[in-house]
Amino acid sequence: MKVIFYVNAFFSLVFALGVLFGKNPLRSALSLLLFFISISLYFFFAGSDYLGFVQIIVYAGGIIVLIAFVIIILGLRRESPDFDISLRSFVGIILLALFALGVLYGMGKSILHFVPQSPYFDTSVAGIGDAIFSRYLLPFEVASILLLVGVVLAFIFAKKEV
C-alpha cells in the first residue's frame, strides 16, 4: 500500500510538472487530467470512495473538457514558454519562493494541528449527506448561492442583451 502511495505521489508530481512545462496546450490539459485522476487516488487511499469518484466526475469529467473546449476555440497553437529572466524578475522569483515557503510552513503547522480535531470521519455517502444537511448546512447553502451567482454572472457576461 505504502509503495503504491509513493509511486502515485511521484506520478502526481510528474503530471503537475507536465502541465507547467508542456509546450503543447492540449498535452498540458491532458497531463492536468492525469494529475486530477492521480489526486483522486489519494481519496481512495484515505478510504473515501465517494470523494474519489466525485473528484474524477467533477474535475476530470467536467472541468478538463471545458478547458479542452477553450483550447479548441482559441486555436491549437504551440506556445513556447518565455524564460527571459531579467534582474527584476529574478528578485521577484526569489521573493515569491520565500513567500511560498512561508505559506507552506504555516499550512504544514496548521494541518498538523488541525487533522486530528476534524469532527467527521464518516466518509460514506450517507455520512456525507448527514454532515451536509445538519452540521454544515449553512456553509453548504452559502456555497450553493455562490455557485448560483457565478452562473448568473456567466450568463450576463456571455449574452450582450439579457
Binding site: L26, L30, L33, I37, D49, Y50, F53, V54, I56, I57, A60, G61, G62, I64, V65, A68, I71, I72, L76, S124, V125
Partner: peptide, 25 residues
C-alpha cells in the same frame, strides 16, 4: 463497490476524452 453508480458516471466522464482527443489530435 458501495458507490457503483458514481463509478459508472466517472467512466462515462473519462470516455469523453477518447473521442475528444481523436478529434483534436
Amino acid at each position: 463497490i458501495n458507490v457503483g453508480i458514481l463509478l459508472l458516471l466517472a467512466i462515462s466522464g473519462i470516455n469523453t476524452y477518447g473521442v475528444l482527443l481523436a478529434g483534436l489530435s
